[in-house]
Design a protein around this nucleic acid. Structure first.
Lengths: 139, 139
DNA sequence: CCGTATCCGGGCAGATACTG
DNA sequence: CAGTATCTGCCCGGATACGG
């Protein structure tokens, strides 16, 4: 497993693009951000995590946690007790990523109305269908 | 405007998560960021865009551009000339998103080595197998 | 309680061919 | 040149059942 899907050397950008893609692939999926933000309040055990994130399945929760642990964004601590207990917590690195995500959230909060407005008027004028919009060049 | 309290990195977002998901769904996919960053230098026509982003197909380029146009992040200008010419350009909104992405890139550039290191040692110690780390509870 | 293993359906993305 | 249309594979992600 852990198969990468980067098929070929399609990088045209500066070398940074690979790094950006990596972090984007991580936070781009549906659950990672939710897990991280949920853990921001403090360490939680598996079942609490599952309860705190309504839509998530065990499969996705486990997978996401493994990925995050592998990248050093969260820690996993298993207590050898009679009822097994496992706690997950954010690392400093994880918190720094949370900060970045929070910045994104700030952008979203600031501009989401504008985006929604543009989207609405685009659909009204039929931009999505790629017809019309043959505007006369102002030059 | 929605009043946010994003000052502290210690809370789970109740309702705002939808906005975050929206913008994350947009920049999370493989091509959007590449297109936006390519356009950051200035307006480009369709074929130039395609040439500047090696791996992209017409389908994905068109789709991405449509989505970006719909959300008001890029403008599309068609010139009714004998050889058809269409130019795409970033809007101010698009540039502000580019700024946010650039911030992400900065994070990636700063921490990618750390992440890569963690990933390597995780695979070496077999973290994926979820063993070890049976530390004595400190409480 | 904490996961892993397996089956399976839906959507996304690549390649190709065609139009204005 | 600038797209649209269609077919297809395949990966993601949900549900379920089972192991430690």
């Amino acid at each position: 497993m852990a198969e990468r899907r980067i098929s070929g050397p399609c990088q045209s950008w500066p070398e940074d693009s690979a790094f950006i893609r990596e972090v984007l692939d991580r936070i781009g999926d549906k659950w990672t951000v939710l897990v991280i933000s949920t853990l921001s309040a403090g360490p939680l055990r598996y079942s609490d995590l599952q309860a705190s994130i309504p839509g998530i399945s065990q499969r996705m929760l486990t997978q996401t946690l493994k990925l995050l642990e592998r990248d050093g964004l969260v820690t996993r601590t298993a207590y050898a007790e009679v009822p097994p207990r496992v706690e997950y917590d954010l690392t400093d690195l994880g918190r720094s990523l949370l900060d970045a995500v929070t910045a994104m959230a700030a952008w979203a909060a600031t501009h989401h109305e504008e985006v929604a407005g543009n989207r609405a008027s685009s659909e009204a004028t039929g931009v999505g269908r790629a017809k019309a919009s043959v505007s006369t060049p102002a030059r």
